[in-house]
Amino acid sequence: MKRTISILVENHPGVLSRISGLFSRRSFNIESLAVGVTEDSTMSRITIVVDGSDYTVEQVEKQLNKLIDVIKLKTLEPDELISRELMLVKVAAGADNRGDIINIAKVMDAKICDITRTTMTIEASETTEKLDNMLEILRPYGIREVVRTGTIATQKGSDTINTKK
């Protein structure tokens, strides 16, 4: 099962390698990983999507917690999270099918952010599943390049990772 883990870490060099090293060393599978600074510039947030059993997820959590650089972490349950991923996809598009692609983008709430004689670049911010779906629909037109950020997520409602339960 896929699980999303949100991790607050010290914002200094070397932290990311400690975390990714831990995953490979303990053979945990990372589906995606995204990093960025937070409201507090001394902390970064890493969002990791892992695929594994409950046992694996528990181990991931515990091993991550052992790292001194990890300040706090939380596994976000599927029904309590809002997740997004940003994707840029360059599709082959000439005069004959530009209209089609514009329509697909519109239906999917995506934007055309660049256009050339032979290609169009679509920008979409969605859940991972919807992005996968969009790629399937675009595939017949010829996908030239896909760039994705990996999932970021937060919990629904007013609580944050810092809310004490």
């Binding site: 046992y55 528990e58 181990q59 515990k62 091993q63 917690n65 052992k66």
Partner: peptide, 8 residues
């Protein structure tokens, strides 16, 4: 003392 050892 190490929570990660419990259940590992």
């Amino acid at each position: 003392i190490d929570p990660a050892e419990i259940g590992k």
